[in-house]
Nucleic acid binder design. Structure first.
Lengths: 136, 136
DNA sequence: TTGTGTTTACGAAAATATTCGTAGGTTTGT
DNA sequence: ACAAACCTACGAATATTTTCGTAAACACAA
């Protein structure tokens, strides 16, 4: 007989859908918000009803992507996953599926096609130097 | 009365789904292949039936993501979109939806989380120098 | 010829993601 | 108190993506 073991440190897969990611982005940007707050931002870029946003956020709550405070009349939602960690996972998955695991290929593609401006390039160069220093 | 104008230079959106991208990757790697060829590679990493692969490739053909030579008994398929262009579009979309348009943020996230090795870092540094030279 | 194996085409089921209508509760202003 | 405005919950319709069963055509060997 077998038994499923649930490991504590099993890195949890954060897998927001397209729409869910839009909402996470808003919450990361604005901090704790009501459904209406989020919906007002979303409305600017897409055209969906209020209850659609509500439903999405409820689903995300069930999936533990969001926390919420339900003591107030209008529930206040907060992201329950960190932006860094989520971005990290998304980038990893993206690199695997699009660039067969090669981060440097992604980097060069990103730098090449996007007319990255001087300031951004400087940041990156500084960052590279930092990495090199640390690895010595 | 209105009339839809189809512009010649309207950059066509290449929007493969997850599964379609897997198939494109195989075709870019192996070159022209039959459904069976593709399916044998696919089988190694996932578990799906032959007709599933077939159907996917037929759909991709309808969408013009693939070309095919149907003169032979086993049709031979080829990618009909370039790897570079497709990757470019995917990266752009990814940067927009995950990093709010900032390529440098993506780059730093990619370099930071992925223990990129020395060789890769060197490539990137060289690439940056090239860019700088050209922009002078 | 007949059977075995391989192929394409096609429709539809299954799985997943998105959207929205409606019901019922709470708050607010008059 | 009453109506208008706003909120949540929830089921279900839509849309999209993935999977597969089945039929028909063809090749090849016995």
């Amino acid at each position: 007989m077998y038994e499923l073991i649930r490991r504590k440190n099993m890195a949890e897969q954060i897998k927001p859908t397209e729409s869910e990611l839009e909402i996470l982005n808003i919450l990361w940007d604005k901090g704790p918000s009501t459904v209406r707050d989020v919906h007002e931002v979303l409305e600017q870029s897409k055209d969906a009803g209020y209850t659609t946003t509500l439903k999405l956020m409820q689903i995300m709550y069930e999936k533990k992507l969001l926390k919420r405070d339900a003591t107030t009349k209008s529930h206040v939602y907060t992201a329950n996953v960190s932006q860094e960690k989520t971005q990290g996972q998304l980038v990893k998955k993206f690199i695997d599926s699009v660039f067969n695991g090669s981060a440097s290929q992604l980097v060069m593609q990103a730098l090449g096609n996007h007319k990255t401006n001087k300031k951004e390039l400087d940041e990156i160069r500084k960052y590279l130097e930092e990495m090199e220093k640390r690895s010595k």
